[in-house]
Amino acid sequence: MITVTDLYKNFGRLAVLRGVSCHIKEGEVVVVIGPSGSGKSTFLRCLNHLETITSGEIVIDGIRLTDRETDINKIRREVGMVFQRFNLFPHKTALGNITLAPVTVKGMPLSEAEKLGRRLLAKVGLAEKADAYPDQLSGGQQQRVAIARALAMEPRVMLFDEPTSALDPEMVGEVLAVMKDLAREGMTMVVVSHEMGFAREVGDRVFFMDEGCIVEEGTPAEIFGNPRHERTKAFLSKIL
């Protein structure tokens, strides 16, 4: 589904990613952990080309992101993204947030898009909030709308960039529950998160990143229970 080969990303002279390679299979849930500044978010953002990569290759669903002819907007339709700070459109209702992209990008008729939108809102447990504006919703509700918004484009991969770290503790659960449902439905997911419970329960694999590299990868049981690298051990001892 996703193959990354020798990915480098520099910001000016700062090397943020230094040779990341990995392969993510269809339906797999990968949780990326690591200290701040380790390049986790940058890695995720490279996957849907929010960052232009310096060198290396990313292939998603058989399409090379780095090819000049590749229509990047087409890739982005296949790859949904959920942000730490939700980034809902404040001038649109929950439903309006969801219908915007299907209508403008896919040319879906509004009535059909609204039907889809209401179905997705029901899926994330917010059927009654269709007409609410983002500032009328709690953080957890906003993030669930953001997930529904990404799903409206029927992506084949979902990327989550620390989806719960801007939330009050009591709201983390409702967002994770939605993500767990998605994982169970077979969605391919790459999740940057330190929610160990989530990683253990639904994660197929865990990547530990440090200083721009994937230092260690394995099943959640392996990484959390029996880390091999010193850096992984040091990091886990701090957060567990």
């Binding site: 929010l50 982005r76 993204m81 942000f83 980034n87 915007l100 484009m153």
Partner: peptide
């Protein structure tokens, strides 16, 4: 906010 453009682009909008 820059995140607004990013969110829109991430949905496949030009």
């Amino acid at each position: 906010d820059r995140g607004q453009m990013e969110a829109a682009r991430s949905l496949g909008m030009s």
